[in-house]
């Protein structure tokens, strides 16, 4: 009995069909990157939704099998592994959203206008509510008891920014030439990342390479 749809359409308007296996691989690498990048990365909600649908479908089929069936145990184990990845991925994003709430919201406002949003609509809503709650809390606990000229909630002073200059480990998925490493002395150094090679360097110069999948954080 075939428990998976081997080919799943990603979305109605998208013609391209990809296999569950590819979705899982993409999700896993997105999870790994999200765990290791200092800033929030563009969401992969398409992959998450797709995989959740697949899990539901699979669970329905497992329920038809007898409880003691070995296949049921194996499938359940695999589903638990995938659920772990999805949960951990979403939680990591939420904790970044909470931590860097103010800068993320500021940047996201511009990105929403240009249609290149990093957060899902739900995450965006969560971030806005989180900030609002934080502001109200600050007001009731501290600010309202301060002298009149100090009662403003200054969000830019409260903002915590991710350290884009923190160092990360990465592996190049393809050869990339001419990554510029800034040097404090003004002597910029250019390096090439060969396919499969591993490096430790500042996150900033390779941030775009992480987002377009040319390198994998490790």
């Amino acid at each position: 009995m075939d428990l998976t749809d081997d080919n799943i359409a990603l979305s109605e308007d998208e013609e391209e069909e990809i296999t569950a296996e590819v979705v899982l691989k993409t999700l896993q690498s997105a999870w790994q990157n999200e765990r290791l990048a200092p800033e929030i990365l563009p969401h992969r909600n398409d992959m998450v939704e797709c995989m959740l649908g697949q899990i539901q479908h699979m669970e329905r089929n497992i329920n038809k099998l007898p409880k003691t069936d070995l296949r049921a145990t194996i499938h359940k184990m695999e589903l638990s592994r995938i659920k772990f990845i999805i949960c951990n991925y979403l939680k990591t994003r939420l904790s970044k959203i909470e931590k860097y709430c103010i800068p993320i919201l500021n940047e996201e406002r511009q990105r929403v206008e240009s249609g290149t949003n990093f957060l899902t609509p739900m995450e965006y809503k969560y971030a806005q509510e989180y900030l609002l709650n934080m502001e109200n809390h600050m007001k009731t606990v501290v600010l309202d008891k301060m002298p009149g000229n100090m009662q403003m909630f200054e969000s830019n002073k409260m903002a915590e920014h991710p350290n884009m200059q923190s160092h990360v480990f990465l592996k190049a998925n393809e050869t990339i030439n001419g990554v510029v490493l800034e040097d404090l002395a003004g002597e910029d150094e250019e390096i090439d990342l060969e396919e499969g090679s591993q490096h430790i360097l500042q996150y900033k110069p390779i941030a775009d390479l992480v987002k377009n999948g040319k390198v994998q954080l490790i």
Partner: peptide, 26 residues
Amino acid sequence: GGYGRLDHLTMMEINSAKPLLPSAMD
């Protein structure tokens, strides 16, 4: 240095250098 190359190190080995090496470099 602010840059290093680590070919042939496995993920577990790299992980054992965390968070010491990256944060020292920071």
